[in-house]
Each structure stands twice: as C-alpha cells, then as structure tokens.
Design a protein around this nucleic acid. Sequence first.
DNA 1: CAATGTGAAATGATTCACAGCC
DNA 2: GGCTGTGAATCATTTCACATTG
Lengths: 226, 226
Amino acid sequence: MFPDLPEATVARLPEYLRALHGLAQEGHDTVSSEGLATAAGVNSAKLRKDLSHLGSYGTRGVGYDVALLITQIEAVLGLTKHRKVALVGIGNLGHALAGYGGFASRGFSVAALFDAERSQIGERIGTLVVRHIDELAEVVAAEGISIGVIATPARAAQQVADQLVGAGVTSILNFAPCVLNVPSGVDVRKVDLAVEMQILSFHEHRKALTALPVPPEQPAGEATGS
Amino acid sequence: MFPDLPEATVARLPEYLRALHGLAQEGHDTVSSEGLATAAGVNSAKLRKDLSHLGSYGTRGVGYDVALLITQIEAVLGLTKHRKVALVGIGNLGHALAGYGGFASRGFSVAALFDAERSQIGERIGTLVVRHIDELAEVVAAEGISIGVIATPARAAQQVADQLVGAGVTSILNFAPCVLNVPSGVDVRKVDLAVEMQILSFHEHRKALTALPVPPEQPAGEATGS
DNA sequence: CAATGTGAAATGATTCACAGCC
DNA sequence: GGCTGTGAATCATTTCACATTG
C-alpha cells in the first residue's frame, strides 16, 4: 500500500492524527497545513511533504478536510484493525502500563499480562489476571495478539523477546535498557527513560557552559536561549 | 565544549555508555569498535564516527579503553553533575516513574513530587511526600532542580510546563500526549507510548499486506522478514 | 488569491573504503 | 596485522520557493 513511506514521515503521522482529533473535537471541518502543522508542532512545509506521500487529500486555497484526513491516516497506520497487546513484566512500570488509558483510547487493548515471578501470578489488574510467562505462546495464539511490550528488568528481556518471537509476535515495544536481538521481519522499538534524561542532561550541560564563558562585560542584557 | 556534536550522535552516547558499563562489569579493559557497536546495537562505522567527534580515545590495533571512554562520555553528557528531577503528575504513570530505579542508577534523582489534586497531596512514595503544584517554584529553587518530568493528563500539561519554566527549569521530559510551547532555550523531549504503538502498527500492517499479495505459487519457502 | 503539492537545493546522517598508526 | 580515524560517496530528510489549482 505504502511500501516506501519515509520512516521519518511514519513517525510523525501519529502526531498529526492526534492533532486532527483535537481539531475535530473543537468543531473544525477543515484545516490549513499551517494550522495543522502548528497543532502538531512541526513546520508547514514538512507537513505538506509528509501528507503528499499519502496522496492528494487537500484542496488548494482551502486546506484539508479534517474527517477525511483522519480516515486516511488511520488506514495507512493500520489502525482500522484493533490490535491486541501482551504486556510482559508486571513490576513497577508494568503496573502503570497495564492501567494506562492512552492505549485503549487509541485503538490498542492490553489483552494479557505475564510475569515470571510466582509472587505476581494470579494478581488481578483491572479485568485481567497476571499469568505465568510459560502460557505466553498459548495465549498469544488464542487471543490473536500481535504486539508485545517488554517491561521486565534488562537481564530477562532477551529471553522474553525470544519467547514473544517464538509465539509469533512480530512487533515489540521494549522498555528494558538493553539491545534485543530478533530475526529480521520482527520490529523492535525501544523506550528508555534514562536515555531521554541523559540527552536532556547533555543539553543542560551545554547550556551551562555556553552561558558562562562571557562573564563580566556588559552588566545588562536579556537571558537568551539557543 | 562540544557545541556542534550531531544530535543523532548525542542520542546514541547513552547507549554506548550503557554498553560500556556492561563490558566493564564483565571485566573487559578494552573493546574494539566492532565489539562495542554490537553491544550497543549499531554498526561499527557509525560508532567510530560518533566517537571521533569526542576526540581520539582509541588505540589503533587495540581498541578503546573501557574505563577511559566511560569517563569521557560521562563528561560530555554532563553526568558528572548529579541532576535533580521534579516529577509532576502523580497518577498511574507518575507513581511508576517515582519508583523507577533506572533514574537513580544513572545519576539522576527524583527530588520532589507534585500534583494538583487534593486527594494526592501528602501521599508518601518512598522517602518523598507529594506536594501541591503551587509549591513548585519554591522547591525547585531550594533543591536546585534542573529537569522537570510531566506525567499529567494532556489538558494540564501546558500549564505545568509554564510553571516549570517560570520556576527556572530548562529541560522537560513530557509524557503527556500533546505539544508543549516553551521559550527558546528550554529543551523538551517527548515520550508518547501511543505513538510508539502506532508506528509498530504501521509496520505490522505493511507486513500483513506484503506477505499476502503473492498467494498461491510455490508452496515451499522460508518466512523472510524485511 | 490563498493554500496545496512538488521539483530542486540544502542540510544532515550513514556507510564505504582505506590511509595511517600502534 | 588489526583496528582506529576520517575523507569521500551515498542516502535520507528538511527546507525553499513557486507553479498550479480550486
């Protein structure tokens, strides 16, 4: 369908979709590239280039039809199909993810919870019960689960990834701070909170260094950022 | 110090650092670009190019000194300074973040918790007590907090961002699914779990589409990914 | 005439391939 | 001999600027 949509574009489509839902809720029928770009936090040229890859759904002189564009982007992202998620690792973060409303509200449902620790098995979270990881393959097949989320400690993550792949899962969201080896054809996305903090730390550090080096010259002056 | 380190490189340095700590723990004194690249999940040319931006810390014919490289990368990322974090929004996700060990283990400490809801104020989490958001500026100044983490619902996030900026925070990690407007000089990084899921969804969708279109030809053949 | 869609230019990132060094 | 460091080449992404169109 869109075999060669640039990866950078794919990564922005969900943002556009969120912005569009917001605009729709505010009663907008159409929106200009400028307006949508602002709502999504990008510049308008980039937005137009991104959308042009999907085809021509705008009207020159007018803008984009909000409802139509929502439909199109959802189709491209495959959100017409409701996707079920297996969450593995019911610790601190796993609990939060299991109860996170943001998934359900955007077409995903956490359909099963797994852990390896005896102490966790059987715990109820919402409507679900935590099961032992050994039941993974069985449940993935029975429920038609297509995405696995790993929220285990790093030392367990590779084994869990192997089990997910073995069970037929081909998309993994990894919260464990480690590299996963998976066969080609399996997609892994990684979210590492400490990495995000360290990137911020770099910029803090740089700001601190570039703010000082011109110390006592003109006493007056505005504090100016990058 | 490193004013023009490519952003893509900055984003990978934390991965290298994690890999290096792993290697150090396994007793390696030196590591080749090939070895480190594998441990960090990148290819060796990219790793060498990245490290070359920091200067020449490798030895031809040998590799990199693990301990030295750790020191260098930590210095570049500004991790020598222990950074304090304010966490705003003590809901589902906020609780998990407040208890997340990954921060402390890598040089960050959650120094204060805030919420706007009466019901949350005063709750103890670990050694900290949840305070009212109105105390933000005071506590940020008193504790020397440099990074703010927003884990509120989207509708509250912009106001919280304004309050953080007003209190002097210049780095924000945003978990709320919305765009934040901040003055230049303030860095925002965004983590949106639903966006990650939607990107995975796109690839699932594409895999499903490209797997079928050649239906009944050669019954045999390996399942091959991208 | 306002705003899209898009070639072309500019910028940024990755990969190649090998000279230079230990 | 093995491995780093790096110019040059390739590839990807962003931005510009404007012809085109409803």
